[in-house]
Amino acid sequence: MTLSQRRRVERIVVYVGAIIVFLIMAFPLYGVILTSIQHESDIRSTNVRFFPRYVTLEHFREVLTPGHIVPIREAMKNSVIISILTAVVTVALALPATYALARLRMPGKRFILGALVSVYLFPTLLFVLPLYIQAVKRGLTDTFLGLLIPYVAFSLPFTIWILRSFLQALPIEVEEAAQLDGCNYLQLFVQIVLPMMRPGIVAGLLMVFVLAWVEFLTPLLFTSQLKLLPVSLGLYRSTYDIKIGQLAAAAVLTALPVVVLTAIFQRMITQVITAGANK
């Protein structure tokens, strides 16, 4: 085989591979969207179709009607509130910690970072058992605060780790120069480091927003009156006499905000994760 022949074969392999990967990764999402826009009778037909012959929004109308068993509107509002709160508080706590770990001189930095990340070795339920008891005792179940505390703690080590790697990948020369101009460390942090970290901050906010949005176990235990999207969906799935079209429509609505955000900011998220992986 000549070099150009070999290149042609390589290119064919790449495109065939790309199509296979695309189909496999996209199909589950495509499937649920397809289900959500077909009539219930067609969904339950054993004659499974892979392409829509029509589009009906009846399932979306049904689940969005007030009083539906899945309180989509209320749950959507609550999920947005708790996810934004979690993202803002987590990143606000993570940024100074990140700066301390990446740039300042302090004893035991490696130990602190190791301890922070090692919490992920433990199953979440190990912490949730006593937290649940505390929440019940202090009347924090069904409150935003009762969710916010564990949510922030669960996403904080990950956020610190990702942001620290991002900061370490930034050139330190700018800070050194500002230091020589007489900036102290606090000024350096506020005036130099934070502006430079803007892409990292945006990606961090987004990632924590997503992590909070998809959280299921904690709100499953900590809420009954306070409706959140994934829990409402999970509980609907286990109800008797389920409408599959409506389940699919509710699933689409549950995933939609985070999937759209991720698609829009894919480049930024990828950049921050890969910066983290290279450290």
Partner: peptide
């Protein structure tokens, strides 16, 4: 995208 899909979904 699958990373952002809620596990329940």
């Amino acid at each position: 995208l699958p990373w952002a899909v809620p596990p329940v979904v």
